[in-house]
């Protein structure tokens, strides 16, 4: 009985093809089950006040009725200057973030800095920078520098360091070794290896990350004013508190058009530069 008879062999079912290994299937099912549990738990315990929901359609209709027609006279009074300020906050914040993130990205790239402790330190700075939302950074910087554009610039910069640094260090790690080794072989100093070996390879990635973040920062800087960090958000906050919804509507329309223009400009620049 130690050898299978031909009869039992023929009776064996044909091998079934599975797309995933058992371990993969278990992992996937676990993720599905845990996600389902999380959703059910959230649905059952989240606090929703039903009384507020009854008049939601009325409130929404009221919101739009009060917004239209826009208070156009408000634009030259306050919105225009605030808009320019928002633009400067976003751009300066992005530039400052680029300056701060560049050396950190070189520290974080494992092929450039061969020191795990320094890599880890830079990664830690990136994660902390990204975890704290720009509005919360703005709260902190308003407490330090007082209300105004300076706090806005700093919060945009500190929020962007993590984003730019992470993406740029990943681009650095993907840089090819060839040019770097060639320069090393000529006895080039380390600074020159950086400028002529790494930089030309990662420059497109650098500018594409910078443009991407600038686009995001234009959006973010529009709300920083809600906590006093300058820009068009200050005007928005004032109009909201006064319940001047026609001014709110105008500001929202202005923000929308700026965002659309920014998207067009960044995609044009990206096509030309990269």
């Amino acid at each position: 009985m130690n050898a299978l008879s031909p009869v039992t062999q023929a009776a064996k079912p044909p091998r079934v093809w599975h797309r995933f290994t058992p371990a993969e299937r278990i992992g996937r099912s676990m993720v599905y089950v845990l996600s389902a549990i999380a959703v059910v738990w959230s649905l059952r315990t989240i606090e929703v006040i039903p009384e507020f929901l009854y008049d939601a359609p009325e409130q929404t209709a009221d919101l739009f009725r009060r917004m239209w027609p826009f208070d156009w006279a408000f634009y030259p009074e306050q919105v225009h200057d605030a808009l320019i300020e928002t633009f400067h906050i976003a751009t300066l914040g992005t530039l400052l973030a680029l300056v701060l993130a560049l050396p950190l990205a070189f520290l974080a790239a494992r092929n450039f800095t061969r020191n795990p402790a320094l890599n880890w330190l830079a990664q830690f700075i990136f994660v902390s920078s990204r975890s704290v939302n720009s509005l919360i950074w703005a709260l902190l910087f308003v407490a330090i520098f007082g209300p105004g554009a300076l706090a806005g610039v700093m919060s945009i910069a500190f929020r962007s360091i993590g984003f730019i640094g992470k993406l740029f260090s990943e681009a650095l790690e993907e840089a090819q070794k060839g040019p770097v080794e060639a320069l090393t072989a000529t006895g080039a100093p380390r600074a020159m290896i950086l400028v002529k070996g790494y930089w030309p390879q990662v420059e497109p990635a650098f500018w594409s990350v910078a443009l991407l973040r600038w686009d995001i920062n234009i959006r973010e800087s529009a709300v920083l004013g809600l906590v006093g960090a300058g820009g068009i958000g200050v005007a928005l906050d004032a109009s909201l508190n006064n319940l001047y919804w026609d001014q709110v509507g105008l500001i929202l329309a202005v923000i929308f058009s700026v965002v659309v223009v920014t998207e067009i400009v960044t995609s044009w620049l990206r096509a030309r530069l990269i």
Binding site: I46, E47, V48, I49, E51, F52, L53, A56, Q59, T60, L63, L135, R219, E220, A222, V223, L226, L236, L240, L252, I255, F256, V259, V260
Partner: peptide, 23 residues
């Protein structure tokens, strides 16, 4: 349109529409 407004601005509008709270 969904992308162009910051979540905080959208939240302001929804707070007006459905009231304060997690919803």
């Amino acid at each position: 349109i969904c992308r162009s407004f910051h979540p905080v601005i959208v939240a302001i509008l929804f707070v007006k529409a459905v009231g304060f709270g997690a919803l």
